[in-house]
Computed example of a mutant assay.
Amino acid sequence: MTTPEQLLQALQQEIEKNTYGAHPVELYEPIRYIMSLSGKRLRPLMTLMAAALYTDDWRKALKPAQAVEVFHNFTLMHDDIMDCAPLRRGQPTVHEKWNANIAILSGDVMLVRAYDLLLDVESDRIKRVIKRFNDTAAEVCEGQQLDMNFETRWDVTEAEYLNMIRLKTSVLLGFALEMGGIIAGANQQATSLLYEAGVNMGIGFQLKDDLLDVYGDPAKFGKQVGGDIIANKKTFLLIEALERAEGTTKTELNRWLIAEEFDKEEKVQAVTQIYNTLEIRSLTQAKISEYFDKGFDCLERVEADPARKVPLLGFVHQLVEREY
Rank of each mutant, 00 (worst) to 15 (best):
L173N: 08
K223C: 10
I258R: 06
G174S: 11
A10Q: 01
D210L: 03
E243F: 00
E266Q: 13
A85S: 15
Q285I: 05
S106E: 07
S170L: 05
D228I: 14
I274K: 03
P30A: 02
K233T: 08
Y54D: 03
V129S: 05
G39L: 04
I81F: 10
W58F: 02
K223F: 06
V310C: 01
T251Q: 12
D213T: 09
E142Q: 14
T249I: 14
E260K: 11
Q91R: 11
I102N: 09
W256K: 00
K233V: 02
L37G: 14
Y161H: 00
Q206K: 11
W58E: 00
L207M: 15
L167R: 15
Q144L: 12
D210H: 07
D217S: 09
P311S: 00
C84F: 10
H78R: 09
I258V: 09
N18Q: 12
E122T: 13
F71L: 12
E303N: 11
V121T: 12
L105M: 10
I15C: 04
K250V: 03
T169I: 06
L172T: 06
L167T: 05
Y33E: 10
S38P: 13
N276V: 08
T2R: 04
L7A: 04
G181A: 01
G39S: 04
A245L: 06
L173Q: 09
A22D: 04
V214H: 05
L53A: 01
A176R: 00
T157W: 00
L162F: 07
L87G: 12
P86D: 15
E240T: 12
L117A: 10
V129W: 00
Y215R: 03
M82N: 15
S106N: 06
Y324R: 12
Y324A: 07
Y28K: 04
R125K: 15
A61S: 06
S106H: 03
L193K: 14
A197M: 07
H95G: 14
A197H: 06
I280G: 01
A137H: 14
L283E: 07
R125D: 01
E243W: 00
N187I: 03
E14K: 07
S36I: 02
R308Y: 08
P30Y: 03
L27C: 04
V25M: 10
A50Q: 03
S106Y: 04
C84E: 15
F296T: 02
I165M: 07
K250N: 08
F296A: 04
R301I: 03
G226N: 12
E29L: 08
K234F: 01
P218F: 05
A103L: 06
T272K: 15
L117F: 14
E142P: 04
E151F: 03
Q13G: 01
W98H: 11
K208H: 15
I288Q: 14
T2I: 12
E96N: 10
E139Q: 14
E26Y: 09
